[in-house]
Write a protein that binds this DNA or RNA. Structure first.
Lengths: 214, 214
DNA sequence: ACGAAATTAAAACGAACGTTTAAATCAATT
DNA sequence: AATTGATTTAAACGTTCGTTTTAATTTCGT
C-alpha cells in the first residue's frame, strides 16, 4: 500500500516554504496550495501548524543524526582499536560530511538543511525547542570526541571553538542566494566533496589554533 | 529642544522585539505597547512596519560601519607607511572588535547585533535587502584588505573562508540563551575583550589554514 | 456490492494583523 | 489669547491568519 501521498506532498511543500521564507512568514494556505491539497488537510494530518513543523524537521533529522552518530562511533572504535586518538578533522568530518551531503540530496535545493540553518539562527523560535530535543545526545558525544582529539584544550576553549565552527557550518547550510562581494571568478556551486574539504580546512585549523594571548 | 522621545522609544522597543522574536513574529501592537505609544504612532513616524525595520537597522549600522571602516583604513595606512602587509588577524580585528563591542553596549543586551545576526540568517527576508545596501562598500574593502594579508590564497578560497568566518561571527552575534552541551564550568558571559581574542584565534587560524588536499 | 472508516472538500469561525481616518490634544508663534 | 502645525488618541478599515465544523467523497475489508 502506498502511504497517503497528501501527507508527503504537504511535508515537501512545507519544507520548501519554511526554508525559503521562514516559519511565521509562511501560511498554511500557501503550503496547501503548493501541495495541491485542501487547507484543512494540515490540521487533519498533523494537528496544527507547529506540529507540521516538527514533522518536517523530524522526517529528515532522525536519519541524518543516525548517520552522523554511526560515523562518529565507527571512528571512535577504529581509533580505540589502533590505540590512537582521532584527529580533530576526522571527528568534525563525521558531523559535517553527512550534513552537506544531505544538502545536495533533498529536493535538489537543500531545503531541509537550509531550514535547520535558519532554526539555529532563531534561538527563541518554535523550531529551536524541537530541534534541540533531537540534537542534544549527538552533540554531547561530539563534544566528548573533540575533547579526546584536542587534549590540550580546556573545556571552556573547546566549547567556544565548537560554537564558532557550528556557526560557520550553519551559515553555509543556509546556502544564500544573495551574496555580496562575490568576485566574478568565484564558483558558488561547488561540488559537495570540495566544499566539505574547504570547510574542514578552515574549521580544523580554527579548532587547533594556538592561543594568541595567555 | 529634546527630539520627539516617542520615536526613540519605538525604535528601542522595536529593536528589542525584532531581535528577540524576529520581524514577522513581532506585531506593531506589541511594539507600541512596549514603547508606551499609540498604535498609529509607527505609521505616523515611520510610514510602515518595514520602514521602521530599516530605521532600526540604519540607526546603529551607520555609526558601526563608520567605525569599522575607520579602523580598517587606519590599519591599511599604517601598513603602507611601514611598507609591510597587514596581518590577517589585524584586518579581521577591525571588523570583529567594533561588532562585539557594540554587542555589549546597546541596551545591555546586544539587541541590535542579535538582530543583524538574525538578518544574516534570513537571506530572502525583508531585512536582508536593507542590510546589504549598507554593508556592500565595507565588505568590498574588507575583501581587498584580506587579499593583501593573505597573498597565497586564491580569490575562490578567500571568498569561502571569509564566508565561513562571517558565519562564525554572525552566530555568536545572536548570543543564544539556549545552549546545549554546555559543560558546567564554561563561562558564557565572557568579557568582550576575551571573546574577541578567542574568536580571532579561531578565525585567523582558519583563514590561514594550509589546504589539506590539492 | 455494501457499510464503516478514512480522507477530502467547502465554508465559516473568531482573532490578530498592518494600515487609515478623523477627531482630540499639545506646543509654539504671533 | 488666538491660531497654526505637530503629535497623540481612539476607532474602525479590510485582509489574512490558524483552526473548526459539517458534509461529501473515496477507500477498503467483508
Amino acid at each position: 500500500m502506498s502511504p497517503p501521498v497528501t501527507k508527503q506532498r504537504i511535508l515537501d511543500a512545507a519544507e520548501h516554504l519554511f526554508a525559503r521564507d521562514g516559519y511565521h512568514a509562511t501560511s498554511l494556505r500557501c503550503i496547501t496550495q503548493a501541495a495541491k491539497a485542501n487547507l484543512a488537510a494540515v490540521n487533519y494530518h498533523f494537528g496544527s501548524k507547529e506540529a507540521l513543523l516538527e514533522a518536517v524537521i523530524v522526517r529528515r533529522l532522525t536519519p541524518l543524526n543516525e548517520m552522523r552518530l554511526g560515523q562518529l562511533e565507527a571512528l571512535m572504535q577504529r581509533a580505540e582499536r589502533s590505540r590512537r586518538v582521532p584527529s580533530c578533522r576526522e571527528v568534525l568530518r563525521t558531523f559535517v560530511e553527512p550534513t552537506l551531503r544531505q544538502r545536495q540530496k533533498d529536493s535538489e535545493t537543500g531545503d531541509f538543511i537550509a531550514l535547520i540553518g535558519r532554526t539555529l539562527a532563531e534561538p527563541r523560535g518554535v523550531a529551536m525547542t524541537i530541534f534541540m530535543r533531537h540534537m542534544d545526545p549527538l552533540m554531547i558525544k561530539l563534544f566528548q570526541a573533540l575533547s579526546l582529539a584536542l587534549p590540550g584544550l580546556s573545556q571552556q576553549l573547546l566549547f567556544w571553538r565548537l560554537h564558532f565552527a557550528i556557526g560557520s557550518l550553519s551559515h553555509i547550510m543556509r546556502c544564500h542566494e544573495r551574496y555580496s562581494l562575490r568576485p566574478e571568478d568565484v564558483n558558488i556551486d561547488l561540488p559537495v566533496d570540495e566544499l566539505v574539504e574547504l570547510f574542514l580546512d578552515f574549521a580544523a585549523a580554527g579548532m587547533e589554533a594556538q592561543r594568541w594571548s595567555v
